Simulated assay, not measured.
Amino acid sequence: MASGQEARVTAAVLIIGDEILSGRTRDTNLGDIAAYLGVHGVDVAEARTVPDVIEVIVEALNALRSRYDYVITTGGIGPTHDDITADAVAAAFGVELYEHPDILQMMQAKYELTPARRRMARVPEGGELVINPVNGPPGFTIGNVFVLAGVPQIMRGMLQDVGHRLKGGAVTQSRTVRVEGSGEGVIAAPLEAVARAHPEMSLGSYPFFEPGRFGSNLVLRGRDPAEIAAAVGELIAALKAAGIADVAEIEA
Rank of each mutant, 00 (worst) to 15 (best):
I84M: 13
L220I: 15
T141H: 04
M120P: 00
Y111D: 06
V145A: 09
G139Y: 02
M155S: 07
G168T: 02
V145N: 05
Q160A: 14
F140D: 03
G168C: 12
L191V: 15
R221C: 08
S216I: 01
G139F: 00
A170M: 11
G168P: 05
P115L: 09
E128H: 13
P124C: 07
V171C: 06
V177M: 05
T172L: 12
F140W: 08
Q108K: 13
G185W: 12
A88W: 06
E125F: 06
R223Q: 12
T141Q: 08
D224Y: 04
A197Y: 04
P211M: 11
G127E: 06
A226Q: 12
G139W: 00
L203D: 04
A91H: 03
K167P: 00
L220V: 15
F214A: 08
E128S: 13
V179W: 04
T114S: 14
R223P: 01
Q160W: 02
V186D: 07
F208A: 05
A188R: 15
V219A: 08
M155G: 03
L203M: 13
Q105T: 11
G157H: 01
R213C: 04
A189T: 14
N132P: 12
L97N: 05
K110R: 15
N132C: 13
R213N: 11
A91M: 14
A193C: 06
